[in-house]
Design a protein around this nucleic acid. Sequence first.
DNA 1: CTACCATCCTGGTTGC
DNA 2: TGCAACCAGGATGGTA
Length: 270
Amino acid sequence: RRLARVEVRRRDLRRPVPADLARRAAGQRITAVTRRAKYLLLHLDGGAAILIHLGMSGRILVTPADAAPALTIHDHVRFLTDDGVEARFTDPRRFGVVDLVAPGGVAGHPLLAHLGPEPLATGDAPEAAPPLLNGALLMERLAGRTGAIKPLLLDQRMIAGLGNIYASEALYRAGLSPRRRAHTIRGGRAERLARAIGEVLQEAVAAGGSSLRDYRDAAGELGYFQHDFRVYDRAGRPCPDCDCDSARTGGIRRLSQGGRSTFYCPRRQR
DNA sequence: CTACCATCCTGGTTGC
DNA sequence: TGCAACCAGGATGGTA
């Protein structure tokens, strides 16, 4: 659709919303919607693109403009289309991003330029698509890295698109300890990890994401992948796949790496 | 390289 | 019931 109007209600997000975003985006037609890492891209017919990141607490809610909920102080940007639909960016913590990328500037944008390979397709045309993750590529990128694997999975320059929940879940599925030194993941282990990353993300997307507390998708629906967590936020509970009795091993354990919580089964993950 | 720390910000939960 | 401490889906930049 064409953007009939764009209204910026608050500019101080993680980075400032450009002062001219509303003026430059208004009147433009959205020709494609793609994704890179955790960034959403609305491509405009003038060649520019709107770049959006939800951060920790961000959401986009799409409704008929005449049936949209009352605005609150957390509604920062409103996109109104020519057919009467509103897409509203809401973000209480304001860790999110809404930016405008100049024509031809997507690949070189500072937030996008150094991102690693993608576990899933991004919606780009084949010639414009970023590299896809596989076992061989993962092994190559982990070579020489002597630190623990789990914090590295959160580094968007290493692999694009994994967050804290799915890093723990992927390592569990691959049977790899979050503390394993990254460069020791080679051959079959790298294949398993690359496959686990793709699978867990695909399953989570199919389930509408994970609503720890209040995440909702664009239709306002809660995700339900949180019911399928095997380790995340399950410290002390039994591992779903090995028969370690939780009384003896303590079941799923939690540890802190790089200031983030990691969850794992010490028996199944080596 | 590594690990750790603080920072941005708000709100929900927990413990006293 | 009140209040302070702590924690959270992310990313960055600093230190040693």
